[in-house]
Design a binder for these strands. Structure first.
Lengths: 232, 232
DNA sequence: TCAAAAGTGTTCAGCGTACACCCATGT
DNA sequence: ACATGGGTGTACGCTGAACACTTTTGA
């Protein structure tokens, strides 16, 4: 096939995806890591990854890898960066496209988790990781910090119903700093992207706190009106 | 080699880089495009690209492709995004990692430009491009807009010495809106990252305008003092 | 009754924004 | 003398940030 002349002169390379999986539990941002089940570095902590198949889009490969580990589909998943140093993987020349995912830990499939020897670690104290995976985690954290200020991605880490205190704790975990309760509430409520439900959460307080949910329609109206989602 | 068992079960793929090359001339932001010299889509306008070699880092591949077309090294070059839909290139399964470059058009190697049938186009009126290249250009524009507000990348598009008016015109071109002269000057000068030279540019005005240069050392001090580069 | 979390407004300073005129010089 | 681009300061409104007390209720 003449059409492929120029292409077939070049060498093909392995292409993989690796997933940085974020969760939120006990007021801490956490990472889901697995133990590598094959060499090189068998038994070491690693991001969950897999090779991209010939008939599979990059995004689909990332979804597949994520579903294999968590059992979850319809998860927030965003491409982070492509890592391609020749010596990044001692097992061979592998280009890895990193994705980060935000999941609600309550919805997790525990079986899959066990199967892949996976475990949650707080983002500020996770074990050493193989290859350039620490670099990936670092970049993912920075991306999440930036993104959470200008797009409503944080809600992906909470269950559908949440209290304002839980939401604040989440932002505090992502940005690793305390926020002022009154200012936080004023700001998030002023954007009018939440709907208050007719229910209270009595688990965390005797008095009970109103439950809210993120309202996609309100968010769309906000954007249509020329405003933006902004947290400070 | 047992170490590669898991890897050799997977198929390798072609990996390419494509470069979105920005320049600034006649108060307009411009794109350097080439005519494809081989099938598929021979003769169509395209971003400059090339395959990643087996012994070559991703970033190095992008630099090589950029140098081949422009003759320039030491250019601002940043990875943009990895494109990997199975049907993105009718010539075969190719993962493309897009990079964008900011170059000073005055330093351009005209010969290389001719050799690859390359041509500059204003970013608001460029011809149709092959594959998913329009999507790449769009993403690069957005990245440049965002980045230029929080990091001093714009200077990469100007020659070393420039007037404040030229700098303002550049920001206006990137953001496609008029800026207030007094506010613009106040803001850029208040950060103290420019050094005023003892020379004036008399090309664009009779009176002459002071020439400035971006001062890396001043910029580093700004960061050390906990401040940030911010343009609004 | 007490401990623990929920909920609620105001004040102030600093910044972003709008805005108009004089200057220098080459033709 | 005039046309062209260069250069400069102020006033105001809005927003971000700091800050403390009352309420509810289960134990």
């Amino acid at each position: 096939m003449a059409i492929l002349d120029k292409y077939t002169n070049s060498k093909k390379l392995y292409v993989a995806v690796d997933c940085i999986i974020f969760g939120f539990e006990d007021d801490k941002l956490r990472l889901l890591l697995t133990k590598r089940m094959f060499d090189p570095c068998k038994g070491c902590w690693s991001l969950m990854g897999g090779f991209v198949q010939e008939d599979e889009n990059l995004d689909d490969a990332a979804s597949r890898v994520l579903e294999r580990l968590t059992g979850l589909t319809d998860v927030y998943l965003e491409q982070l960066y492509a890592y391609g140093d020749t010596d990044r993987d001692p097992g061979g020349r592998v280009i890895s496209v990193a994705y980060y995912a935000l999941i609600c830990t309550q919805k997790l499939d525990k079986d899959a988790e066990d199967k892949y020897l996976a475990k949650w670690f707080p983002v500020d104290t996770y074990p050493s990781l193989v290859f350039d995976h620490p670099e990936m985690v670092d970049k993912a954290m920075k991306r999440l910090r930036r993104k959470s200020l200008i797009q409503p991605v944080g809600f992906e880490l909470l269950s559908e119903k949440f209290t304002l205190t839980q939401l604040q704790k989440l932002y505090e975990a992502i940005h690793q700093r305390k926020l002022d309760k009154r200012n936080f509430r004023k700001q998030i409520l002023s954007m009018d992207v939440l709907t208050r439900l007719e229910e209270k959460d009595k688990v965390n307080s005797k008095r009970g706190a109103w439950l809210y949910r993120f309202d996609k329609e309100k968010y769309d109206s906000l954007l249509e009106s020329g405003e933006h989602f902004v947290m400070k």
